[in-house]
C-alpha cells in the first residue's frame, strides 16, 4: 500500500493541555543528573548532535571546517565520540560526504525548499532527489505549514509520503516547524500526520523561527512517537532542533526521552539534537566534570 493511501488510517489526535505539559516538563527539569550519569549523559549528547550550518552564506570552506570538527570534537581529551551527523544544504552534500568519509558521521541534507517549504511539489521532489543522489544519508524535509494551518491535512500527508518515496535508502526527518503551528494541539496533529505518512524521524524546527525546540513541544512529539510505537511496534526517531544551546537543557531532553520512550531511544539512531553551538558547551561541561575546574570558551574550537 502506498503511503498516500494511509491517510484514512490516521487516528484522531488526542488533545493536549498546555499547562499539564508544562508541569510534566518541569518534572524532567528537576531531575538531578550528577557524577557518572552526568558524564555518560554528556557523551551521549555529543554523539547525538547533528552539527548544522544552514545559511545563505555557507561556503565550501565553512562546511569543510565544520565537518572536520564533527569528527574531531576535542582531540586533547581522548575517548570522545563524534557527532551523529552534519546537516547542510543540498549543494553542500557532496562536499560534506567527501569530508566525513567512513568516520561514521552521517550527512543530512535539508530539502523541500527549506526553510519555508513554499514551492511546488515537483520542485521539492527534485530538491530531495538531488540531495539523495549527492549521497545524503538523511533528508530533513519541511512540511507545508500554510497548507496545514489551512486545514489541508491530506495535502500535507501526501507530500510527506511522496518525499519519503524519493528518499530511497535515506532516512526521512520531517520538520514540523512548531513555532509556526502555534498550539500543542497542532504540534500533536502534525506529528501524527508525519509519522503515519512515513517519517523516520520527526523534527521540531528549521532553526529559523522562534520558539523552536522547547521541551513542551518535544514532549508533545515524543508522546506521538510513544503512542505510535504502542499501536504498531514501530520506532520513530525524534530530533529537537534550534534553541538547545546548553548541556543542562540537552540532559533534560535525554531525561525526557528516557522516561517517555525508554532507553532504546537513547542512541543517535533514534534521537538527535539539531544544534550548532551545543557541542562546545557540552565539551566544556565534560572537561569541568573531569577536572573540577570551570572552563573558558577560549580553549574550545569554533568551526
Amino acid at each position: 500500500m502506498k503511503n498516500q493511501n494511509k491517510f484514512n488510517l490516521l487516528p484522531l489526535s488526542p488533545t493536549v493541555d498546555k499547562v499539564g505539559v508544562e508541569e510534566r516538563v518541569s518534572r524532567f527539569q528537576k531531575r538531578s543528573i550528577k557524577t557518572n550519569s552526568k558524564m555518560d549523559g554528556l557523551k551521549m549528547v555529543l554523539n547525538m548532535i547533528d552539527l548544522t550550518t544552514l545559511e545563505g552564506k555557507d561556503t565550501p570552506g565553512k562546511v569543510r571546517q565544520m565537518c572536520y570538527k564533527a569528527i574531531h570534537l576535542h582531540d586533547s581529551f581522548p575517548g570522545l565520540p563524534t557527532v551523529a551527523a552534519v546537516c547542510v544544504y543540498p549543494s553542500m552534500v557532496g562536499l560534506a560526504k567527501s569530508m566525513v568519509k567512513d568516520s561514521g558521521v552521517k550527512v543530512a541534507s535539508v530539502s523541500t525548499a527549506f526553510p519555508s517549504g513554499q514551492a511546488p511539489l515537483d520542485v521539492k521532489i527534485t530538491d530531495t532527489k538531488y540531495a539523495v543522489e549527492q549521497g545524503a544519508d538523511e533528508i530533513d524535509m519541511v512540511i507545508s505549514r500554510g497548507k496545514f494551518l489551512a486545514g489541508e491535512y491530506s495535502f500535507v500527508f501526501d507530500e510527506i509520503a511522496q518525499i519519503k518515496e524519493v528518499c530511497g535508502e535515506a532516512r526521512l526527518k520531517v520538520i514540523l516547524e512548531t513555532g509556526e503551528l502555534a498550539t500543542l494541539d497542532n504540534v500533536r496533529k502534525a506529528s501524527d500526520l508525519a509519522i503515519y505518512a512515513g517519517a523516520d524521524f520527526i523534527k521540531t524546527s528549521t532553526g529559523k523561527i522562534q520558539p523552536a525546540a522547547t521541551m513542551q513541544v518535544t514532549y508533545t512529539m515524543l508522546m506521538a512517537i510513544r503512542d505510535y510505537y504502542d499501536e504498531t511496534g514501530i520506532m520513530v526517531g525524534m530530533k529537537p532542533a534550534g534553541g538547545i544551546s546548553n548541556s543542562k537543557l540537552a540532559l533534560h531532553n535525554l531525561v525526557m526521552v528516557k522516561e517517555l520512550l525508554g532507553d532504546e531511544w537513547l542512541t543517535n539512531e533514534w534521537f538527535r539534537f539539531g544544534a550548532s553551538s551545543l557541542a562546545n558547551d557540552v565539551l566544556m561541561q565534560i572537561l569541568k566534570t573531569d577536572t573540577g575546574k570551570y572552563q573558558s570558551s577560549d580553549y574550545f574550537t569554533i568551526d
Binding site: 554523539n47 565520540p81 532507553d263
Partner: peptide
C-alpha cells in the same frame, strides 16, 4: 561512532 546502548541510570543525588 554510535553510542553504547546501555541503560542510562540516574546516579544518587542526595
Amino acid at each position: 561512532m554510535t553510542s553504547k546502548n546501555k541503560n542510562w541510570e540516574y546516579s544518587p543525588s542526595l
